[in-house]
Design a protein around this nucleic acid. Structure first.
Length: 574
DNA sequence: GCCGTTTTCGGCCCGACTGTTTTCAGTCG
């Protein structure tokens, strides 16, 4: 089995967990966690770097020791120091760390004092009231652990960004009713436009913080108040979404906004920078010798450490601080840069509106063009078009275009890529279309080699324009199929094809890291709604968020082009 | 275990809330 970066990251995380339970040096533990994160976010596979004899210590957070461990893992699939640690500490303990309220100290106490090694044993001990006997544990702690255990067994739960947005907006509207509130922003991963969010961080400025806290806990949708102080509260909504609300003074707003937007890795790096300059940054501001010198807005905070403002979507410590330093931050694409949408369905297949209605909705959004791209016949559940129906639709679009003003409907197709890489529509029909989007809708379980070959072969077809939802993942539902995206992106570059960033909230596929890879290779990404109704065009905003997380600028995006430019680019692939 | 414009040793981000303490440890974000 080839070793992937995720495997290496998992090993480093497990080492960190075990060291933590062993009460090891916290900075050593952090080094392992940093390394794990860096492995996940590495553009290329570590095993390739090892094969090419690259110097791994050049990677961020990787020194001599960890470089040796990476090589060992790549070459043997194993890690001796991990195995040694496992010999000392039972395998179930790291899982106990995942339970809210349990950290290394408590897990260690549970193990050493009560010989608890598994979630099941912990559950029994809590039910038998044996936990409260331990020093530092009481009846309340025991009850909290029991409750957390019950939740832990049933699920692990993040919400898709679009779903979280509904709850966030409703809660913000409710909070705003309180007169004490001046500013209110949903920060955290929500503001960074992560595809899923685990909780909501809501930041508020208000004259009377306590009044805001009281108002919050009166919200109808709250199932549980986890904690409530004068400036900070944690509640759980009925849908089990956790919400943290924090109140700060207006002169702290920028510092708090920066702090609560994260990511944690980004914040740590910024604070480290501040420290070097003799400054201290916390959520209340930037301080020099105990005196606040900045913090009213985010600009000030960045300025204090010698940087321009960095857009939230980039704040992952994936090179944005270095880019800011060098003045090479991208000018990220915005919704208003989009000139049209290139992936939409109508009633002819599984959509709900007519061509005319879709065109009208596109025009209302100020677009210059939109493409109708129905499924092909292989996708029977969607009533995909065969040759005859496709030709009829081509004719129909020509007629509609003749009547339209201010918007052009492009003729396209979302054609199935069959198992052998051929397309589910004859070439002579594809030749009459403005664009051909190829999509994998079947045989998700092919081996990496076969799946990759299948897609590369499809991209070789003379009329192929664009690869739809390139990894096929459905958030929280279906893993991406196993495909070598580096080769797919390279092929797109060679063939002059494009990659879709599908904006359906469940897909958001191309992933942000692949957007970055595409950009680096000069492959244009098309930010497409995959609309099945006119309202679906609004999903574009989530795709824009994802594209921004992938460092894309307007020039990196196909559908920021004018119709004339777009037509030229589409022809290039023919 | 990593790292370097206080560089090869001695640092490593920082504060709120809870529970079990009688002054603070543990956890979380």
């Amino acid at each position: 089995m080839p070793v992937h970066n995720a495997d290496i990251a998992a090993i480093f995380e497990e080492i960190a967990d075990l060291l933590e339970i062993e009460n090891e040096n916290p900075f050593r533990i952090r080094a392992y966690r940093n390394a794990a994160r860096n492995m996940l976010e590495l553009g290329s596979e570590a095993r390739d770097l090892v094969e090419q004899g690259e110097d791994l210590t050049q990677l961020p957070g990787i020194g001599k020791d960890l470089a040796a461990k990476i090589i060992e893992i790549v070459q043997t699939g194993r890690c001796q120091s991990l195995e040694k640690l496992r010999g000392k500490t039972p395998a179930g303990l790291p899982e106990l760390l995942r339970i809210p309220g349990l950290g290394p100290k408590r897990v260690s106490a549970l193990y050493h004092e009560l010989d608890i090694r598994t979630v099941e044993q912990l559950m029994r001990a809590a039910e038998d009231h044996r936990l409260r006997q331990l020093a530092g544990f009481g009846a309340k702690t025991e009850a909290h652990i029991l409750e957390a255990l019950k939740a832990h067994v049933t699920e692990d739960h993040r919400l898709k960004l679009a779903v979280a947005a509904q709850y966030a907006n409703a809660l913000v509207e409710y909070l705003k009713q309180n007169q004490a509130i001046k500013d209110i922003v949903v920060a955290g991963s929500f503001r960074r436009c992560k595809e899923t969010v685990g909780d909501l961080d809501i930041l508020v400025t208000a004259g009377e913080p306590a009044a805001v806290m009281d108002h919050l806990v009166d919200y109808d949708e709250i199932a549980d108040v986890v904690s409530k102080g004068t400036t900070r509260a944690t509640v759980v909504l009925r849908n089990r979404l956790q919400v943290d609300v924090r109140v700060v003074k207006p002169q702290c707003f920028g510092a708090a906004l920066h702090y609560f937007t994260g990511s944690r890795a980004h914040n740590i790096e910024i604070r480290r920078r501040a420290q070097k300059r003799g400054l201290k940054i916390n959520e209340y501001g930037v301080f020099k010798n105990g005196k606040q010198i900045a913090g009213k807005d985010e600009n000030e905070v960045f300025k204090s450490v010698g940087l321009p403002w960095i857009p939230p979507e980039l704040r992952e410590n994936r090179g944005e601080i270095e880019a800011a330093e060098k003045g090479t931050l991208p000018k990220l694409v915005e919704l208003k840069d989009i000139r049209g949408d290139l992936h939409a369905h109508t009633k002819a297949t599984d959509g709900h509106n007519t061509i005319e209605q879709m065109a009208e909705a596109a025009k209302q959004r100020g677009w210059e063009y939109m493409a109708i791209t129905e499924h092909s016949k292989r996708l029977t559940v969607a009533h995909g078009l065969d040759k005859k129906r496709q030709l009829k639709q081509i004719e129909q679009i020509s007629q509609i275009n003749a009547t339209l003003d201010g918007i052009t409907v492009l003729k396209g197709i979302e054609v199935d890529i069959l198992e052998d890489g051929s397309l589910d529509m004859p070439d002579d029909v594809l030749a009459q279309l403005d664009l051909v989007i190829g999509a994998v809708h079947s045989k998700f379980n092919l081996s990496r080699g076969k799946q990759t070959e299948r897609i590369l072969r499809a991209m070789d077809q003379p009329h192929f324009t664009m690869l739809a939802h390139p990894t096929g993942r459905l958030l929280e539902k279906r893993e991406p199929y196993d495909v070598d995206m580096a080769r797919v992106i390279h092929q797109a570059q060679q063939r002059g094809c494009f990659l879709e960033l599908n904006c359906h909230p469940e897909r958001l596929d191309l992933l942000d890291t692949y957007c970055q890879m595409a950009k680096e290779q000069g492959v244009l990404v098309s930010i497409n709604s995959d609309a099945h109704t006119t309202a679906d065009f609004d999903n574009l905003r989530y795709g824009i968020g994802q594209a921004r997380r992938g460092w894309l600028e307007a020039k990196d995006v196909l559908n920021t082009r004018s119709l004339a430019q777009l037509r030229r680019l589409l022809k290039r692939t023919m």
